[in-house]
Amino acid sequence: MSMKTKIPASGIDFAAWKNDGAFDGNAEARADLIADVNDYFGDVFNPQNAVDTTLEGQKSREMGGFDVGGGSPLDFAYMALFKEVNLRTSTSRFHEVVDISAGITFTELVDGEKAKVGNISAASNTIKALEYGAALGILDRWIRYNEFFRVEEALQAAVKTYGYKQADMHYALLKALGTGVNEAFDTSVEKTIDNACATILEAVGDKYGLSDQTEFTILANRRNASIIRKALAASFDKPNANNGKIESNIGRFVITSNTNIPASAGAYVALPEHSLESATWRDLTSEEARSAARRGTDLHWSGEFNAAIGNSSQVRRIALA
């Protein structure tokens, strides 16, 4: 393999791969190129690579996205709530969610059909791997005329589309929770947050062996971020003299602009992990095939994942006014 100069975003130098014959019948070089693309996918979709920035003067933290170029980071904020379940070596399409109480997940009736939110119960406490993917043709003329930026743009489009799908599905589960998780506004945002934490502790504290020091996570639309920040700041601005501070242990505050978490919904207070699960059977990977009709190479991307809220008592949707 010849020396490659990294280019923005993916770091894959398609020009060098062209010189090595990856687009011109060299099977070994082509296989290595696909491996490079898959390695990049693995980095991008690893939540551990998300930027975790501590807010100055506050205990809470905001999880940003892994920058994939173009100023459009992926939204990984949901992973502050969900437990990551690694099923990459599993030989079953199904995963058992241990704790079930008014649970929801995504389901599909037949392969390829659009997933819909469905209920899970103690009688059927499994979630199924759902496959999502896309395809793109890399035209011969792009390679011939060294228009590698078009290949890079297509790669980024695949990453962002798949990343949005993952985030959207997780937030849709929160949106689908019924009115039973609603926490009415009580005097102040601080008091309402405390009420939500207390409700969660009373519902699942004994089951999970929790204490008053258990950490909670707050998720809100970006438009409501300043309201939550102000409430959190009261816990650190002269806390002994501030009777309106939050008494509960808020370990993380994350924000999103996803439309499933609108500002009108207030915010979500959650006990993270436990029955809130995000399962991955297969990371986004690519395969290629020559298309004579297209006069190019077709790249097919796909991955398998699903998520579930096994016990809705872990989540409260709070009103901010």
Rank of each mutant, 00 (worst) to 15 (best):
I200L: 03
W142C: 06
A234K: 11
A196M: 02
T126L: 06
T54Y: 01
E56L: 08
K59G: 10
A225C: 14
F14Q: 05
Q58W: 06
I34Q: 08
V97H: 00
S90L: 01
A308C: 13
M3S: 14
V44G: 14
N26D: 15
F76E: 04
V117E: 09
K4M: 13
G296W: 03
I246Q: 02
L81S: 08
E288G: 04
N224K: 12
A80I: 10
V51D: 09
N243P: 03
E247I: 11
F23H: 09
T54F: 01
A9Q: 11
V269I: 10
E273I: 14
R282S: 06
S248E: 00
R295E: 13
E277N: 14
Y162S: 00
A265M: 10
L139V: 08
F185I: 14
E84N: 05
A31F: 00
V51M: 07
E84S: 07
G209H: 04
E62P: 03
S92H: 08
T187H: 11
K160C: 12
S235G: 03
S10N: 07
E273W: 15
F148G: 01
G65P: 01
G163W: 11
S302A: 01
L276A: 11
D111P: 06
G57A: 09
V98G: 06
G303S: 13
L109K: 13
N119C: 05
G69M: 11
P47E: 01
R223L: 13
I143Q: 02
F82G: 09
D237C: 12
G180K: 01
G71H: 10
R61T: 14
F106M: 07
V181W: 00
G303R: 03
I228V: 14
A80H: 10
Y164G: 08
P262C: 08
G21L: 15
H300N: 01
R150H: 06
G137N: 06
M1H: 07
I143M: 02
R61L: 10
D140I: 08
H170D: 04
N258Y: 00
V110C: 09
L87I: 02
R88A: 02
E152Y: 07
R229I: 15
C197W: 04
I218F: 12
C197Y: 05
I261P: 05
T297E: 02
R282A: 07
P262N: 09
M1W: 08
P239D: 10
H274G: 12
G133M: 02
G180T: 05
F23A: 09
F148T: 03
L219V: 13
K128P: 00
A77T: 08
N19F: 12
N26L: 10
S302G: 00
K128R: 08
V189R: 05
T199Y: 02
D237H: 11
R150D: 04
S188E: 07
E287R: 07
F23M: 09
V204R: 11
E277V: 15
G103S: 07
S2T: 15
K160E: 15
N19W: 12
F14D: 05
Y145P: 06
I138G: 00
Y268P: 09
